[in-house]
Nucleic acid binder design. Sequence first.
DNA 1: CCCGCTATTCAGTGTTGCTATGTACCGGTG
DNA 2: CACCGGTACATAGCAACACTGAATAGCGGG
Lengths: 109, 109
Amino acid sequence: MGKQATEMLKGTLEGIVLAILSERPAYGYEITAWLRDQGFSDIAEGTIYALLVRIEQRGLVDVQKVPSDKGPPRKVYSLNAQGQEYLQEFWRTWSFLAERLERLRKGGR
Amino acid sequence: MGKQATEMLKGTLEGIVLAILSERPAYGYEITAWLRDQGFSDIAEGTIYALLVRIEQRGLVDVQKVPSDKGPPRKVYSLNAQGQEYLQEFWRTWSFLAERLERLRKGGR
DNA sequence: CCCGCTATTCAGTGTTGCTATGTACCGGTG
DNA sequence: CACCGGTACATAGCAACACTGAATAGCGGG
């Protein structure tokens, strides 16, 4: 999509990745591919990796190195307890925003 | 709200302001007050003014200086044709994002 | 042997919202 | 009159985040 999407992704992309990880552990390449598949056509590789590093440093995920028979080893991330909590907070913030935007779209005051 | 909101606002705040202006012309101080009233408790004054300057420079709004009997003159902004178009695009991008997030929240794959 | 796919990393850039501060106009109070 | 609070706008500096582009590296096939 356009540049509007780029700016709108700030903050939400992190939540999206955490939500994905809350369903099952995953690694960067896999997540990027899945997002592209879902229509986030222009999400750059580097973006996801940088994001994963950030959430790891914040202690929201646990990491495990797993060998792959198709290339270099994968860094598999899984959401830990603190990450779950953070994700909950994310959904609260998202709901707040989405609610107000939906109200605005309908022309309500 | 927390810092999550700060990042999530990036990109959406612009759309929010444009949506407000699509209902009726308004000036910065008024918009800030309204947003605070709607629960965006920590939106800074300066943020809105900077945003208004940006969208003016991009030609999305028209400006008119209107004297006030309670203080300095107001800069009243109104959405023009180009702004309307940009707002439409914003809603499309927003729908795209909201749809996918809602799907993720429901744990759907 | 090189190419393509898998997989990760990183330096540099632009946009955005926040912080903090400054300017300025007005009316009311002491 | 001096001061203060509410109204109204502007701006310089900062932090966070996603994108660009490139580099590194392992693996298998032509």
